[in-house]
Design a protein around this nucleic acid. Sequence first.
DNA 1: CTATGATATTGCGATATTACAATATGATAG
DNA 2: CTATCATATTGTAATATCGCAATATCATAG
Lengths: 117, 117
Amino acid sequence: MNLQSMETYTLWADFWQALSHPIRLRVLEALRCEGALNVGQLVDRLGIGQGHLSNHLACLKNCGLVTTEAQGRYVYYHLADDRVPTLLDVGEAIFRDHWAGVATCAVVSQKPAPTRS
Amino acid sequence: MNLQSMETYTLWADFWQALSHPIRLRVLEALRCEGALNVGQLVDRLGIGQGHLSNHLACLKNCGLVTTEAQGRYVYYHLADDRVPTLLDVGEAIFRDHWAGVATCAVVSQKPAPTRS
DNA sequence: CTATGATATTGCGATATTACAATATGATAG
DNA sequence: CTATCATATTGTAATATCGCAATATCATAG
């Protein structure tokens, strides 16, 4: 695949978007801490609806961040490989130094812009 | 800042979102290759409107991925630190192994779902 | 001060994503 | 085969983001 084309950047952006949701990040952190969990266990830990979670899991799987292993009626999810925790670590390190700035970002998570007179 | 709270994950998701846009990725790649560029040079290289680009640059700056240096009327942008190329490298490595799956992801970049009869 | 070039901000229609409920699929026990 | 539990998929209203145009700000030259 050509890494210079506009379409490739659009697809690469979609990959990063897999990391851009609090529920998906909480799934990744839970799997990093606990190794492997099935859908029901993740529903319990995150406290969200099963169908909703399943959509997010499909996203993480399609984007190569997690893999699954079926065991009877249960489907266990775990991090895809060692690069995933590395990615999370580096991202968290940069984020820790800049969370205050992220909160003021007007493009991402556009807050209603403080009204001024 | 408490790294366990839901709000923190929401903010961390906003940080990742800075990477989730083709224009912002192209800016980061341009800066990685060329070191430092001002806004006009980036407008030329990316071929988009100045105001539009400026919004994306503000996003990257707020999220700690780039920093700026004013020189007279020009503002030069460059990558914030060495962790940024590391982040891009690891992300690209995982993406390269899974771009076909990313393209089928229904949560991110929801395609109109192939109609079946 | 005025004009001009460079960059930043704002407003808003078009589009994409999310959250939830309903429903479908798949596996296993009896 | 039927019932049941676990997981996946779909529809859609609410919400957030994008992209562009207009305009504001800021620095410098004259």
